[in-house]
Design a protein around this nucleic acid. Structure first.
Lengths: 110, 110
DNA sequence: TGGCTATTTGGCCATACTGCCAAACAAAAG
DNA sequence: CTTTTGTTTGGCAGTATGGCCAAATAGCCA
């Protein structure tokens, strides 16, 4: 049973790791709006195409996005819509960081 | 405005990155149940104390957990309860991975 | 076929992460 | 004050990540 738990945690960690990059979060947020081809994303992001492609590959391998090849281009879209629910919680974390920081500046407890 | 967005995405990514490790996910799940001191967590995890301490430090710096020093020991607890909401979605991702994998084995489209 | 566009892959380098050991610190107990 | 227990920090070695360039691949259009 222990090994099972470890495997489960590793699997979850891999999904989170795939999301844990600003460019990849940007991609996810763009794909929330609508599907995009690699070239569009590349323009929006402003990095080398190969860099963007590799980020997309990471997200795809993590099961977060799906590729749909149409003609010359590859369009990507979100596979799991609930991804956006993450951010509310992440924001809560960031807000409590900010609160703390403010308190520290105001002379609160360390 | 662009720089703002980038900063926001980086901040979010940092929180996700802090969560993106099996040991740290284990810690978070333990702390959901009740607060724990470093020594308890170390026993449960079965790694070196220094390793566990460093993981705790990562979670603390990300604003996910809080340390409470009482006498000799340091007790940690979750700062933001909503963290567990993450996992439902993460599991959805993993399930669609599994579905896909099954389909592939069954001879589905690549 | 040959050329063009869109995308992916390989390679390289710099940087970051992980885990252990050893050492430093902090608090409590002799 | 010395020892003991609990925790953190520094340092090292191995591994992984991120970004760019160059090259390979895939599909369209003459």
């Amino acid at each position: 049973m222990f090994q099972n738990r470890k495997n489960q945690l590793t699997a979850r960690a891999n999904v989170l790791k795939a999301l844990a990059h600003p460019t990849r979060l940007f991609i996810v947020e763009e794909l929330e709006k609508e599907e995009r081809c690699v070239c569009d994303l590349t323009t929006l992001i402003g990095a080398d195409v190969s860099t963007v492609s590799k980020h997309l590959s990471v997200l795809r391998q993590a099961g977060i996005i799906i590729a749909d090849k149409r003609g010359n281009q590859v369009f990507y879209c979100l596979r799991v819509p609930c991804i956006l629910n993450f951010f509310g919680c992440v924001e809560s974390v960031l807000e409590s960081q900010a609160t703390d920081h403010a308190a520290t500046l105001a002379g609160g407890v360390k």
